Computed example of a mutant assay.
Amino acid sequence: MSDIVQPKIGNYHRHLLICTGSRCTADGQSQALYDSLGERFKAAGIQDGALRVKRSRVSCFAACKGGPIVCVQPDGTWYYNVTSDNMDRIIEQHLVGGQVVQDLVFHQGPGTGCELGEDDPA
Score class of each variant (00 low, 15 high):
75 D>Y: 07
84 S>M: 11
81 N>T: 15
107 H>F: 13
49 G>E: 00
13 H>D: 04
122 A>Q: 10
95 L>M: 10
38 G>I: 02
84 S>P: 14
16 L>N: 00
63 A>G: 10
74 P>C: 08
93 Q>F: 07
12 Y>Q: 05
27 D>S: 14
17 L>M: 08
62 A>N: 15
34 Y>A: 08
111 G>N: 07
44 A>D: 00
31 Q>H: 05
33 L>D: 06
1 M>G: 15
74 P>H: 07
105 V>R: 06
96 V>R: 07
97 G>Y: 11
88 D>R: 02
121 P>D: 10
32 A>M: 12
63 A>P: 03
94 H>R: 09
7 P>Y: 07
82 V>N: 03
46 I>L: 02
122 A>E: 09
74 P>F: 09
21 G>N: 08
104 L>G: 05
81 N>P: 06
23 R>Q: 12
113 G>H: 11
28 G>H: 05
22 S>P: 04
49 G>Y: 01
70 V>W: 02
59 S>F: 13
36 S>C: 04
64 C>F: 12
43 A>P: 11
77 T>I: 12
65 K>P: 04
76 G>C: 09
116 L>F: 14
36 S>N: 10
92 E>K: 13
116 L>W: 12
100 V>M: 11
66 G>I: 08
80 Y>R: 14
94 H>L: 06
32 A>F: 10
112 T>P: 01
8 K>E: 15
110 P>Y: 09
102 Q>G: 15
99 Q>R: 15
50 A>W: 07
85 D>N: 13
95 L>E: 04
112 T>Q: 15
99 Q>M: 08
73 Q>P: 00
72 V>G: 04
78 W>Y: 03
26 A>N: 11
57 R>P: 01
17 L>S: 02
19 C>N: 03
25 T>R: 09
4 I>C: 12
103 D>Y: 10
58 V>S: 03
113 G>K: 05
61 F>T: 05
39 E>Y: 06
13 H>N: 05
83 T>N: 10
122 A>F: 12
24 C>Y: 04
70 V>A: 13
81 N>W: 11
74 P>I: 09
6 Q>E: 14
80 Y>E: 14
83 T>P: 03
115 E>P: 15
12 Y>I: 04
41 F>W: 03
91 I>W: 07
3 D>K: 06
98 G>F: 03
48 D>F: 02
59 S>W: 08
